[in-house]
Design a protein around this nucleic acid. Sequence first.
DNA 1: CAATAATCGAGACGGTACGTCACGTCTTCTT
DNA 2: AAGAAGACGTGACGTACCGTCTCGATTATTG
Lengths: 215, 215, 215, 215
Amino acid sequence: MAQNHAQSAGAQNGSNGNSEKRPPGRPRSEESRQSILRSTLKLLKQGGGFPELSIEAIAADANVGKTTVYRWWPTKAALVADAFFASAEEELQFPNTGSFQKDMSLQMRRVIRIFRSERGKVVAALLAGGQSDSELLEAFRERFLWPKRRQAYQTLHRGIDRGELPADSDLDLILDSLYGPIYMRFLIRHDKLDESFADEICGLVLQGLKRREQR
Amino acid sequence: MAQNHAQSAGAQNGSNGNSEKRPPGRPRSEESRQSILRSTLKLLKQGGGFPELSIEAIAADANVGKTTVYRWWPTKAALVADAFFASAEEELQFPNTGSFQKDMSLQMRRVIRIFRSERGKVVAALLAGGQSDSELLEAFRERFLWPKRRQAYQTLHRGIDRGELPADSDLDLILDSLYGPIYMRFLIRHDKLDESFADEICGLVLQGLKRREQR
Amino acid sequence: MAQNHAQSAGAQNGSNGNSEKRPPGRPRSEESRQSILRSTLKLLKQGGGFPELSIEAIAADANVGKTTVYRWWPTKAALVADAFFASAEEELQFPNTGSFQKDMSLQMRRVIRIFRSERGKVVAALLAGGQSDSELLEAFRERFLWPKRRQAYQTLHRGIDRGELPADSDLDLILDSLYGPIYMRFLIRHDKLDESFADEICGLVLQGLKRREQR
Amino acid sequence: MAQNHAQSAGAQNGSNGNSEKRPPGRPRSEESRQSILRSTLKLLKQGGGFPELSIEAIAADANVGKTTVYRWWPTKAALVADAFFASAEEELQFPNTGSFQKDMSLQMRRVIRIFRSERGKVVAALLAGGQSDSELLEAFRERFLWPKRRQAYQTLHRGIDRGELPADSDLDLILDSLYGPIYMRFLIRHDKLDESFADEICGLVLQGLKRREQR
DNA sequence: CAATAATCGAGACGGTACGTCACGTCTTCTT
DNA sequence: AAGAAGACGTGACGTACCGTCTCGATTATTG
């Protein structure tokens, strides 16, 4: 799988201090690894899209042998995934304002902001590539979607605890109804996608829920 | 643009009998055209996705010279678009049951049915390819999304006329909230996408609207 | 086999004038073919030897796609063989002076002259490459050695007819004894190889034969 | 030069016991050295030829780091030369039967026997590689050809002393005339090379010389 | 007995060339 | 004029070795 490749390099000695057994042979060059990831993002943001991105170009831009790329990433897809996730690991935290609707809306605004930025091209490339590469799509889910969604569950549970939501709500249905429209406009581009769209969706989807509850 | 290419061929002599000026030389082979479109769909359904589909393979499978493909379609994207739309032009009509929610739900079920079928692969390829080819995405919108959406507007207007919906509803917001979750599950595949999902979305999104109205 | 590849291109319509059925498709580019052969010889004469010669470099020097080289020659060896033989097809004719010893000596001098020239490098490359490529060695025999040797047989037969040689002479033994020393000095380079060496060998090997006869 | 490298290792402490100054540090592993030479010969006999032999494969087969190979042999050629000569140093002694022709013939038979054996592949690889690596060819001459030839000179001188040969004979010409045909058939493979060929050559080349003398 | 020094294995590194594939263009004869 | 056939130059693919480099481990001599 994609995420098994590059991310571990920096953290592999993290568990305990110095008694770790290093494998024999010249250790992997952290410098090359980062240079490759950096060049991947750079070229993706510049150039056309996922299919236009060539490993040849990445290696050249990173001043690295093609072999070094292939040694660590089995496919272009895995590389792009790592490059993206390495650069976006800790953003997109959920706020905690006391109102679950406000929390969701704020986080959805951040997603939209990213989708509209240059990094949006990388997400689009990832999802596009994922349509013909199930591992790539799985990497997107495992390393991007699920981590965020787990935080979203907590936010929604807070809403339930506060009585803002029915206890028997289908959380996945709610979340897909909130984010689905964003992904749709992001990928199909049939209508404008600005941050206020987050509020509109929340207004439509969550208002109804709250009303239902208040009766 | 993509759709300007192939569709006129079959109909060019249809309007009136003899005043049409036919250009000299051998006329275009309708047989080749259809064979190419057929092979395109076939290979898309078989093989990986948009990037894996090669014009070389299409021409070989269709028993056609590569030149013939390139003569009539400027890009692979245009060809795939034509191939898909030629095969799906008249399906996905909206029903008219008297309840706009039932109408929407029924049509959403049909969309899901298509997405789950082999033709779903073609849609996915189209949207994936569209991420790095704006003309392909535009073709998808112009020839698939907008025609359906125009029908959806009518359905929603019927709902407004019947008082099922507020008159000032943001129709695009509603439609994206209904279809967005479907596209999201279709493209990201993080959760199951079966036809009952249509009902669930309608339940969540439209119930709220109706409640809001009923107050 | 090597010689089945490129040589036929120029002569394929030679049998009859115009009723020849040409195969469909774009015909092979005679210009490219010759450019490739020319560059092959050029680089072989310049550079190190057979292993140092790269098809990449040949294609670049000939302003030709690598594919074009691979389309027509299965291996580098076959290409080098064609390049050499195309350039040396009709030289090395045997003279007819009335004395078979003088005929042999003159022709051996020509062989030495070629071995000492730049073309010698190509022969060396051919024989070196042939040690790990039996087809290359076979090409050398079929297209270089045997044609010359057939002429040599005639020369020796003339000597027999004139009574200069015993009628029961082992012609192959004689010829290997005459040319073997030349090849040995050419390939091992342990002693000087100039044209007078031809006379010395003839003096040693053929003198004895003639003496034997005269008794 | 090639032969300056590995041969000294085994013998460096052999001359005298303790006055040798051994440098500090871990001494060279004799085991590795022999394992490398053994694997080199093994792969040469198995595989294609000199160009197909890779140092990578040798190191792997010998269970040795690539560095160890490169530390002791500057080029693949030097390694192959050492491997061959280490295995053939003391064979091919000339006999002394009382007849120089019989002596030559017997020794030539031994050469042919070696050329026909598996070790012949190594000789062929050596001479092939030598065509584009003058040091390799020089190693062959210095460590194989000249040592044998010095013995051959003695054999021929015995023949002169016994009156079997003219005193003014060109020994190099004679030896090239005797061995040239063998090398030629060995390298070009246009005719069969069995041990009786040695007698035939001697019969042709030396008979003439003896006749000339007897007059 | 520690310090120093050279070798060992392993294997990653930046490269070069490999032989293949598809690209989009072209050139030919046939329909 | 359009068709099929297929060769053309181009460029990226993923692989194999090249010769160099950095590691920890090993094995000797020297202080």
